[in-house]
Design a protein around this nucleic acid. Structure first.
Length: 431
DNA sequence: TCTGGGGTCCTAGGACCC
DNA sequence: TCTGGGGTCCTAGGACCC
């Protein structure tokens, strides 16, 4: 029996949501098969996971057989192995995933001019009006799905509906390698029986609160009075009520203006000394500054966050009079905020965030900072060297004999990164 | 050897102004 | 001496997503 309707009703818009099945794990499997490995990670209990020795030991992606052991993305590898002692764990190769993701995007762009890269493994595609070129939506989606499998070697789910929310909910239905529709008239039968946690934007906290109030399915949520949800969850309550009814008017958007940037890192050991913490902040500032300059932006707001050994977090942010894209300036501000914030408890994780961005062409130099020009030239030179010879071709001397990475945060460098000079390093939306 | 990193948005509460 | 109130900006924290 078909798992989708053979004919779709007339609607204003036709939206596809393309979701790579177990993305990191599939891509890892495809890469390994291509390089002579005979075992397909997708067919055994396996996960892509970080390195516990540097305190990055969490599950980044799981195979479908691993899912049967109730292993969850984000859970510690330690606990995943307790659930499944034979679990195969492989390290991540981010630059590979970025390539697979981009290859898929290229294919999808052939089917519509309006394509939104929602994350490294999810894409929205506005198929409205494209029936003329590629046939009815379900047939076209089948063809796209099969083409990706044939040309790139991995499977995707495609959800089809009249808005992004329903398309996304549709792609989550049965996996892998499937096309599903979820049009408004199918909501009661396909979406309302689902548990409340499966609704987009209902996370763990909201799901727990709803369950305590006796709401267990999306249908039960839909049946509530929106005023009651407003009372319980403020504006959020109305949003999830609308989602439970399949209401969503957001557009498929090719480009999103960047609002802010952040870099953070879990350090392999607990940091007890101020100087060490400062160095981590410096290495984070390096990455942040480079990304900011690459985007052609300056930031007015700088923020610092700390997670201590007890997993308690705190943060401090400040708006400054002048915007900057200078590594040293970001570092100086971050250090100032850190010194005000830190209570001396050993630190596990440090982060820096910048926001309130403006174009660096309109850069307003402070009268008091006569060094600004020199720093600008320095940043520019270092950026050029790094883009030519790799991220670590030029580092600050204070990192020479240090266990700390001179360039922290972002995605961990993998072998492929180093071979390529580490040029590829961010999977996210900005070109 | 237990618990990542990068985003966006919302809210509460305080400061400050008129 | 009975302690306005609306508007805006700012910060910290927490929710969600991948």
């Amino acid at each position: 029996m078909a798992h989708y309707k053979d004919s779709v009703p007339e609607h204003d818009r036709i939206i596809f949501h393309i979701d790579v099945n177990s993305a990191f794990l599939s891509w890892e499997a495809v890469y390994r098969l291509k390089n002579g490995e005979t075992l397909d990670l997708r067919n055994i209990p396996s996960v892509v996971g970080g390195d516990p020795s540097t305190r990055h030991g969490i599950v980044l992606a799981k195979s479908i057989p691993a899912k049967k052991y109730k292993i969850q993305t984000g859970e510690p590898l330690f606990s995943a192995k307790l659930k499944c002692p034979n679990l195969v764990v492989v390290p991540p190769h981010y630059s590979l995933y970025i390539q697979y993701s981009s290859n898929m995007l290229k294919i999808l762009q052939e089917y519509s001019p309006v394509v939104e890269r929602f994350s490294i493994d999810e894409v929205f595609l506005d198929f409205t009006g494209m029936e003329l070129h590629f046939g009815p939506p379900v047939k076209a989606a089948q063809a796209i799905k099969d083409r990706i499998k044939k040309e790139l070697g991995f499977t995707v789910n495609i959800g089809i509906s009249c808005n992004k929310l329903l398309a996304k909910m549709a792609s989550e239905l049965e996996k892998p390698d499937r096309v599903h529709t979820l049009f408004p008239d199918e909501i009661p039968q396909k979406m309302w029986p689902l548990p409340i946690d499966e609704l987009f934007m209902v996370g763990r906290t909201t799901a727990q609160k709803l369950k305590r109030k006796g709401v267990f399915t999306i249908g039960q949520l839909a049946a509530l009075e929106p005023a009651l949800l407003r009372q319980w969850f403020k504006s959020y309550g109305e949003l999830i009520w609308e989602f439970a009814h399949g209401i969503d008017n957001s557009e498929v958007q090719e480009y999103f203006p960047m609002k802010g940037l952040s870099n953070s890192t879990t350090i392999a050991f607990d940091v007890k000394e101020r100087e060490t913490a400062h160095r981590v902040l410096l290495s984070l500032s390096e990455t942040l500054g480079m990304r900011l300059r690459k985007a052609g932006k300056c930031a007015r707001l700088v923020g610092v966050s700390i997670k201590n050994k007890y997993f308690e977090t705190c943060s401090r942010q400040r708006k400054f009079d002048t915007a900057t894209d200078c590594t040293n300036e970001i570092y100086r501000k971050a250090r100032e905020l850190f010194d005000e914030l830190w209570d001396g408890v050993p630190i596990r994780h440090l982060g820096i965030r910048v926001a309130e961005l403006c174009s660096n062409k309109l850069l307003q130099l402070s009268f008091f900072d006569e060094c600004a020009d020199k720093y600008r030239a320095l940043d520019c030179t270092v950026d050029n060297i790094r883009s030519k010879y790799g991220w670590c071709s030029i580092i600050r001397s204070c990192f020479l004999c240090s266990p700390l990475s001179p360039i922290a945060g972002g995605l961990p460098q993998d072998d492929a990164d180093i071979e390529e000079g580490g040029k590829v390093w961010s999977p996210f939306l900005h070109n």
